[in-house]
């Protein structure tokens, strides 16, 4: 049975759901929309297109302390720090492209032995409400990666926005449990919710069939000699990319006491591969740009079966010099022949 809730009742819904744990919503602050825990008075923008930063930080926080230590020269006491009450989160309003990206991270962090316990716990405890996307912008190209903007198969609840209401279609037990908590605000949808019509995005004339295999032997391809030239060596593309998942581990403290945390890191930074002793296997922008795009287009698909891009368009919107994955694929010959 499909359910519905009037848009005017949403603030009450947010209040109710956030009592259970952090409720992440696309929230606008000073003109920028990002997923943030809901708070009284937050400007919730369910109508917004993808926020600048993808919701990956809910499962893979920008920084996370996982160990504390204390001791002296002879002994060291180590205490594991596990996620706090934050891990019972609800993620509300994720678009299908972003949810598919989270599933790509799942393969890395959960679907192997040993899995990553911090990520796994956050992910398994979270309830995800996906929101159908009806108005992609010129940078959206999720169709190319078989994402249906109107349907996210992995969601606990699939939501559709209409002018007056939000329709909710429960997909899992977790989803039902969540809706049960808000029973008083939600009613049965009398008629079939207006599912968004087929949503078409651009494809930039790309043709990806066979590209991953083709790239296996092209580590030294001359295309890499030009592609990196405009790269500024900043980390925007990696931090706004929903499928980038690298982190760094650091200690904060001194000999007597401190903590160990991990935080986002970017393969676009020179220090990412800096080794003790001074060697750096990726000394320059060329090696780093190649690494990032080969990771998306060849290494990830070789291991997990599909290209690590969902067409969310964030690198196209945010790169200060317009060096994005579409330009990379084109430079590597991934354009549809008839469009050339």
């Amino acid at each position: 049975m499909k359910k519905m809730i009037g848009l005017d009742k949403l603030p009450a819904l947010w209040e109710q759901l956030s009592a259970e744990g952090p409720l992440y919503l696309p929230i606008e602050e000073r003109g920028v929309v990002c997923f943030k825990p809901w708070y009284e008075g937050a400007v919730v923008r369910l109508d917004a297109l993808n926020g600048v930063v993808p919701p990956k930080d809910i499962f893979l926080p920008r920084e996370e302390t996982y160990m504390r230590y204390q001791g002296g020269s002879q002994t060291l006491e180590i205490e594991a720090v596990s996620p706090g009450p934050d891990d019972k989160a609800t993620l509300f309003g994720v678009h299908p492209c972003d949810l598919k990206a989270v599933e790509m991270l799942d393969r890395v962090y959960i679907d192997q032995e040993p899995g990553d316990s911090l990520y796994r716990r956050r992910r398994e405890n979270a309830t995800v409400v996906a929101l159908a996307c009806s108005s992609p912008d010129p940078f959206c190209f999720c169709n190319l990666f078989e994402v249906d903007p109107a349907d996210a198969p992995g969601a606990d609840i699939m939501a559709y926005l209409s002018e007056q209401s939000l329709y909710l279609e429960t997909r899992t037990e977790k989803g039902e449990t969540m809706l049960a908590k808000a029973e008083s605000l939600i009613s049965d949808a009398k008629d079939e919710p207006e599912r968004p019509r087929e949503v078409k995005t651009t494809d930039f004339g790309l043709y990806l069939e066979g590209l991953s295999d083709n790239l296996k032997e092209r580590f030294d391809d001359p295309a890499w000699d030009n592609l990196y030239k405009s790269c500024l060596s900043c980390g925007v593309c990696t931090y706004v990319c929903p499928t980038c998942y690298c982190f760094d581990v650091e200690d904060f403290g001194h000999e007597g006491a401190g903590e160990r945390f991990r935080c986002w890191d970017s393969c676009m930074f020179g220090h990412f591969t800096q080794m003790a002793g001074g060697h750096n296997p990726r000394p320059d922008r060329k090696e780093r740009v190649r690494q990032r795009f080969l990771h998306k287009l060849q290494y990830y698909p070789q291991t997990y079966g599909e290209i690590a891009c969902v067409g969310c368009g964030r690198c196209l919107r945010s790169c200060p010099v317009n060096l994005d994955i579409v330009q990379a694929v084109k430079a590597l010959g991934g354009e549809a022949v008839e469009q050339r």
């Binding site: 602050e29 920028v32 990002c34 930063v53 920008r62 500024l232 060596s233 900043c234 980390g235 925007v236 990696t238 931090y239 706004v240 986002w264 970017s266 930074f269 200060p320 010099v321």
Partner: peptide
């Protein structure tokens, strides 16, 4: 608080 420390401001 929004800063991602992507260092784009520095690099450009």
């Amino acid at each position: 608080s929004r800063c991602l420390r992507c260092y784009a401001c520095r690099q450009v």
